[in-house]
Each structure stands twice: as structure tokens, then as C-alpha cells.
Design a protein around this nucleic acid. Structure first.
Lengths: 337, 337
DNA sequence: CTGAAAGCGCTTACAG
DNA sequence: CTGAAAGCGCTTACAG
């Protein structure tokens, strides 16, 4: 084991308190004293034990980030941004993934890891507002993502309805009229997250177009396979949409793959819009048009919020904060021919 | 704050030790006593403070995983596997990313986070063997990835040379003779990691083919942009390879994108093989042939190794362990026409 | 089978 | 400006 404060104090011939003062850079330590202590520290290779420090202070310097699936590049990219944002506040990130399953999300929100984390950033999929009711955990919780909760917690999410509408508007603006939506939750899933679906519906209605349910396909998850299955489902119904708006980029990518297989050209025959702006979409053979949430801002705000609550900033009401987004137009959308 | 052991003891009218016994499920506690204590625990909503427990035991139950870049799906997928493997041993994973920069890798290996993590799994890019020499940290370190070190640490990596050779052999077997290698490190980078490049060289030589340096392109990193740049570089030199072996899938994907832009068809004009088997490769419009390392095994072995050292398993010599891999043939490779 | 006490490595009032 | 002491919440010999 390494040396402790006591060892250093002994070697330097001072009290533990003095060493602590030096280590923590407190003012009012004579340079000579500082020098002497520093030398003992160097000789012993002393490094403070954060665990002990934090036991004392009641803080660990660790915040947890729980996302559904790291295999989804959106969450991987977001996690990277959160790690960087946390580092700027001297916080370390402990990463969990829930698989988007309600039980795991409850477990995490209820303070699994109690005491080892100071705060929690959670991106839920199936979690219900009622699951949050009994939350006894005192670590600040910040919610991310498409779900909206009637609960007294900070929530950071772009305006999903407006963002979805901007995507659909782009499509209608290009002359498309039969616009499929891929990635609705199955009826079986409780309280489906349909902000984006609602955006689709609202914008079509605003454009005076019908909302044809046979153009809506539910999926089990939000991966490439799900997008492929959904696209096949719509096509197998005999529908021939002239555009597709997908729940996210992964679903869009899966759909594009199917379109190509079935000899439909993107964008000449079918325009495709995704959501998330993952790097992969930029490099797909037909670069994907997509809604681009400001991930850096999301990460920054989430961390800031946790840190502010931890610092006990007074008068901090739970807020729903909406970072910005843009519609990034690439090659997968074109004017209707 | 929540209740402590002492609070529970007080309420149950027993000693702290007895509560501890119940919490830790020690035998030799009368059912009646256990019942009584459990009730106090429930009433108070007591949850053990892991930090305190671990300060005492000198363990935190946290292992760190440091990868170059979470944005690379390979590492995101690997991280997911490590988290799951660790959970099976009741360990939690703290995730770091180094950006593949030597300074960060040194920092991490030298025990940044000292005392908060029990062990460390590191996937280095630029780290040198000498950087490991002075390592004073006593948390077990397991090394992952393509680099090989002359250092007394466990290293888990597939046989990169053999795996690369199998990829190139697949290509030569299809009749290809001018096989480019994309993703060598630049000369400026110290001690380039060229196991895969070596595999390329060895296999070409074995097949009686020349190793044409103008078919080798260095990259700055290992992302899609780098693959695109490398492919352009080779093509701009006036070379027309009939196949491409890329350092990894991301580089391969970037290269495919460029090939398509430059009106070269994959696989009819150019066959492409990647490395990593990320999910994205399965869903690219031309599904990618790739070397598929057993990520689950890598994660499992790495965690097992850390846990075994932590448990103080005697006689555990540092080992280089080579998990399995397979060559997964998809659509991006075809017989030379 | 249960209890009283020491100690893990720190920080923090409180003195001086 | 520095020191002696208590305590964060646990576990662990040591008694009984």
C-alpha cells in the first residue's frame, strides 16, 4: 500500500493537519513548511486516498451515467461528451447501461450504487413517472432523452416534437406526400414515447396531408435490425412511401439498407431522414439527412445541473431544459421526381 | 442522509456488529435476531455505505476501463461487454477515454483515480513499454488491443498477425494480387503498431506476391475520415488496387465510401476487408467482410484476470492470452473478375 | 452467538 | 500559521 497522510506527517515532522493543508493547497502555509512537506510527499510517493477523503466529505466525485445501450453510437458519442464535461468539473463518470429495460432503469434510479455516486444522469426508455415517485435517493437525478415526466427532476432534452416537425417539413417541402414513420413503439409497450411520432402527425396535418397509419411501423427496439424490419413491414403491406422519417439514425440506416436491397434508390425513389446525427450517417454511401441534437450542450447542461445541485445552489427549481438542434441536410433527401 | 449501521443498531437494540453480521449474511445469527434487525433496516430504509465498507476493506468494487475513443463502435461494444462481465463478478465499471494520446494513457496507467479503482483495463494506442516501467500503482493492470508490450502485465489480444494473414489470404484466395493496406501509422508516430501490417506483408510474401509500399497508406487516426483520406491517397497516386485490407472496420467503411464516390464498385472492382466486426459493417449497403474478434471473450478474460489478481490467486504469472477470432465473409469481397 | 473497541485515511472545527 | 482530537460508516480481531 502507498503512504498515508500520517506517514508523510511523520517524515516531515509536522502534524497531519499541516500535510492536509499542503495537499489541499490551503493558503496560510509558510513556503518553507510547504517545501518541507512537499519533499516528504515526493519521497514517499504519497497520493491522497480519494475514498477516505470522500467518506469524510460525503462525496465521491463520481457521477453515474446510465444509457440504454452503448452499442448505439448516439449514446456512445453522448457518453464521451458527458465524460469530458464531467472532467471539466473534476468529476469522474461511472457508466451503466440498462438495455432500456424498466427494471434496470428503476434499479438505477433508486440508487443502486448508493453512496458511491454523487449524482445520476439517466436516459430512460421504459421507466414510468410512477417509478420515480418513491425515489428515496438523495443523489441528484437528471433525466435525458425523449421521454417527458411529470416529476420533480431536471430534464434535458431537445424539443422532440418541433425537431420531428422540422424533419417532416423538410420532406413535405421537397414535395413528398406519402411519408412513412418508422420506429413507433408497439402497443404492448406502456406509454409509448411518441413525441417524434406526434411531430410527424402534427406536421402532416399542418400541411393538409393525411396521417396514414399503414405508413407507421412499430419496432421492438431502435437498432438497424429494427429499422430493416420496419421498412420491410411497410413495403410488404404494399405501401410505396415516397419518403421515410425514422425514429433515429440507426433505424434510418436499417431502412436504407432494405430499400437498396429491394431496388429502391435513395433519394431518387425514396427520401430518408433520421434523427441523432451519429457519425455513421455522415459516412453511409448515401449520407443521411438527419436531425442533429446538440450533444455537447446536452452533456454540458446535464453535468452542470448535477454539479449545481451537489453544490447546493439555492433556489434551483427542477427544470425542463431544451438544448438546440439543427436539421442537417445531406444526400438521402431530394425533391420528389 | 440515510441511516447508518449505528442507527439501525440503536433501533434494534443490538450492537453494530450484529447488524453488520445480518447485512453481510454471516451465519450464526439466530433467526429471531436476524428478523429483528431486518425490521429495523426496513423501517429506516438503511443501505450500506459502500465507500465506508471499501475504505475499511481497501477495495471499492470498481474497475476502470480506459479505451481510446468511445465514438468508435468497436470500443463502445467492447465497453458494453466489459460492463456485463464485471457485473457478473459484482464489479462496477468506471469508463475513461484517452483519445489514444500517450499522456492520457500514462496518466491512467499511473493510477489517476488512485484508490477509487481496484483494477484497470487499458487499451493503449501510443503508450510505450517504458511508460509502464515506473508504474508504482498496485491496482492490477490488464492490457488490451493490438500493441504488444515487454512488460509484466496480462495482455489480452487476438493474434493480430495471424488474423490479418487470414484476411489477406481470403483476398489472395479470391485471385486478388494488388492488395492495399489502409491504416498504417505515420512514421512520426513512435513505434507504430504494425502487427496487422506485418500480417499483410507476411501473407503476401507467402503467396509469392510483392509488397508494394505505394499500396500502403498511413493514417492519423482510425476513423471513417481517416479511411476516406487513405483511400483517396492511394487512388491519387494512380494506384488501382483490386482489393483493400483496412486496419479496422471504420477505416474500411470510409474507404468504401470513397470507392463509391469515385465510381469503383465494391466488390466487383475492388474487394474490401475490415477488422473488428462492428455492427455497422453488417448493415452497410455492401455488408463488410471482416475479421471478427471474440469481444465477449476479450471482455470476460480481462475482467477475470483483474478479479483473480484482486483475489490474490497465488502463482498468477503475467500472461499474453489470445482469444479467438473468425473471418466473417459478407458482400464486400468477391472473386477477381 | 453477540458486544465493545480499534482503525481504514482523510477533513474539520477548535485551540493555541 | 500549526497541532491534537474527533468522526465519516464501516469491518475485524478479540472477548465473553
Amino acid at each position: 500500500m502507498g503512504a498515508s497522510l500520517k506517514d508523510v506527517a511523520q517524515r516531515a515532522g509536522v502534524s497531519v493537519k499541516t500535510v492536509s493543508n499542503v495537499v489541499n493547497n490551503y493558503p496560510h502555509v509558510t513556503p518553507a513548511m510547504r517545501e518541507r512537506v512537499q519533499q516528504a510527499i515526493d519521497e514517499l510517493g504519497y497520493r491522497p486516498n480519494l475514498i477516505a477523503r470522500h467518506l469524510r466529505k460525503g462525496r465521491t466525485g463520481i457521477i453515474a451515467l446510465a444509457v440504454p445501450e452503448l452499442g448505439n453510437p448516439y449514446f456512445a458519442e453522448l457518453a464521451g461528451a458527458v465524460i469530458d464535461a464531467a472532467a471539466r468539473h473534476d468529476y469522474t463518470v461511472l457508466l451503466d447501461h440498462t438495455g432500456g429495460r424498466r427494471e434496470n432503469e428503476i434499479l438505477v434510479s433508486q440508487g443502486f450504487r448508493a453512496h458511491v455516486i454523487d449524482g445520476l444522469i439517466l436516459s430512460p426508455i421504459e421507466l414510468e413517472a410512477e417509478d420515480l415517485l418513491g425515489r428515496s435517493e438523495d443523489a441528484p437525478l437528471v433525466l435525458l432523452g425523449e421521454r417527458e415526466y411529470e416529476a420533480p427532476y431536471d430534464q434535458i432534452a431537445i424539443d422532440n416534437v418541433a425537431a420531428a416537425r422540422s424533419a417532416v417539413r423538410h420532406l413535405t417541402g421537397l414535395g413528398h406526400r406519402r411519408i412513412a414513420f418508422l420506429g413507433a413503439r408497439r402497443e404492448s409497450a406502456r406509454r409509448p414515447a411518441h413525441l417524434r411520432l406526434r411531430g410527424w402527425r402534427e406536421e402532416l396535418t399542418a400541411a393538409g396531408l393525411p396521417c396514414d397509419d399503414s405508413l407507421v411501423a412499430a419496432t421492438d427496439g431502435y437498432g438497424r435490425v429494427d429499422g430493416a424490419a420496419a421498412m420491410n413491414a411497410v413495403l410488404d403491406r404494399g405501401e410505396r412511401p415516397d419518403a421515410v422519417f425514422a425514429y433515429n439514425d440507426l433505424v434510418a440506416l436499417g431502412a436504407m439498407r432494405v430499400l437498396t436491397e429491394r431496388r429502391l434508390r435513395v433519394p431518387q425513389d425514396v427520401s430518408v431522414v433520421g434523427f441523432d446525427d451519429i457519425e455513421e450517417g455522415r459516412f453511409s454511401p448515401v449520407a443521411l439527412t438527419t436531425v442533429s441534437p446538440d450533444k455537447q450542450a446536452i452533456a454540458r447542461l446535464a453535468v452542470q445541473r448535477v454539479v449545481a445541485r451537489l453544490a447546493g445552489t439555492p433556489g434551483l427549481e427542477p427544470e425542463h431544459i431544451q438544448p438546440g438542434y439543427t436539421l442537417t441536410v445531406r444526400e438521402s433527401t431530394a425533391r420528389r421526381t
